[in-house]
């Protein structure tokens, strides 16, 4: 037998049984690793950690971490999700689907808040904070009416959501498929045809008009004209590092060409800008008071603010805890300079 054939047989002998069963790939997950990622909650309470939080605590946390997008009472800012109200509206022409009116299980609220909120700072809440936020969302939906109500892993399943029975399993196979599996008409299917609705009347399609492009060009030209002096060279590495850190900020603050105000004011040219001076943004009273007192965002002031926003301006509506590392702050400042050039 040739060497080649021997090798071939040996290979197929080894290879085939291995492919059929377990490959022995991967390694055992440790209990700590599973615990770190396995945070999901089910309607039967599976996964709920030990903990508790009151409506009153929740109100405070919500005001600090959630209200910038969802409004103080879950009524929402702009197009962010409405969390409260809409009770009994599900069969209306314009239903309002909120946590109170639509979500079938409270476990979903806990799971989602703990998993994905606050937007831009996910996985930062403690179990107690999450219970408190969920309790507050129950409160603004009138599911509970006592501010001293405490939600915990022990009473979590006691109060059902009002729309718990509002869902049923997909039934298209019975209700739709037979109806939509008939022989289709091919000729002389109708005598007349009329246009009944037109998109042009609604006119909501985004346009990239020449006018908009010209306007954008004008803005660039103006900005260039306004800053004729040479700007100091930036540290490219620091700018790149800062751009990464800015991910923490960008859910609320926009920068760069055409940046608009969002949940927070746009930050082009923030260095050297007077506080609360961005047109069209609704600043907190606290921020306006600082502006009246002459606050200008120079590098030192910005540094202090970014370190711990609420330590500098107690009632700022910026719901951000601050940057722990000076290096992160260095980066952000360099990045903000770069986008303003």
């Amino acid at each position: 037998m040739s060497k080649f054939l021997k090798v071939l047989i040996a290979v197929s002998f080894i290879a085939s049984p291995v492919m059929a069963g377990s490959l022995g790939l991967g390694r055992a997950a440790t209990p700590d690793e599973v615990a770190a990622w396995n945070t999901d909650i089910r309607p039967d309470g599976m996964g709920l950690p030990v903990g508790s939080g009151s409506v009153a605590d929740g109100e405070e946390i919500f005001a600090e971490k959630c209200a910038a997008c969802h409004g103080d009472f879950g009524e929402a800012v702009g197009r962010w999700p409405v969390l409260a109200g809409g009770h009994g509206s599900l069969s209306d022409a314009r239903p309002v689907k909120t946590v109170g009116s639509y979500w079938p299980y409270l476990s979903t609220v806990y799971d989602y808040v703990y998993r994905a909120m606050p937007f831009g700072n996910a996985a930062s809440l403690t179990a107690d904070e999450t219970y408190a936020i969920v309790a507050y969302i129950m409160y603004v939906n009138d599911t509970v009416d006592d501010e001293s109500f405490v939600l915990s892993n022990k009473n979590f399943l006691d109060i059902p959501q009002e729309n718990v029975d509002g869902f049923f399993m997909d039934d298209r196979d019975k209700v739709e498929y037979p109806k939509f599996s008939q022989v289709a008409c091919m000729t002389d299917c109708k005598a007349t045809v009329e246009i009944t609705k037109r998109a042009a009347v609604v006119d909501v399609t985004p346009e990239e008009t020449a006018a908009a492009a010209a306007e954008a060009k004008m803005k660039v030209a103006t900005a260039e004209a306004a800053e004729p002096e040479a700007t100091p060279a930036l540290d490219a590495e620091l700018v790149a590092a800062g751009k990464k850190v800015f991910k923490k900020c960008k859910s609320c603050h926009k920068v760069g060409e055409g940046a608009k105000n969002g949940v927070g004011p746009q930050l082009n040219g923030i260095l050297g800008r007077a506080a609360a001076s961005q047109d069209g943004f609704k600043y907190s009273k606290a921020m306006k008071a600082e502006a009246d007192a002459g606050l200008v965002w120079d590098e030192a002031k910005l540094r202090t603010f970014l370190k711990k926003p609420k330590a500098m301006i107690k009632k700022t509506k910026m719901s951000f805890n601050g940057l722990k590392k000076d290096k992160q702050i260095d980066g952000i400042i360099e990045y903000l300079k770069s986008v303003s050039q």
Binding site: S91, T108, D111, Y112, A116, F167, F168, M169
Partner: peptide, 25 residues
């Protein structure tokens, strides 16, 4: 059993005219 998370309750369920919603479509 299923988890009934946000994207299969609040979202991606099909609300019908009578106020009831299909799930797991």
């Amino acid at each position: 059993q299923p988890w009934h998370h946000r994207e299969e309750t609040s979202k991606y369920t099909d609300l019908l005219a009578d106020g009831k919603a299909r799930r797991f479509t």
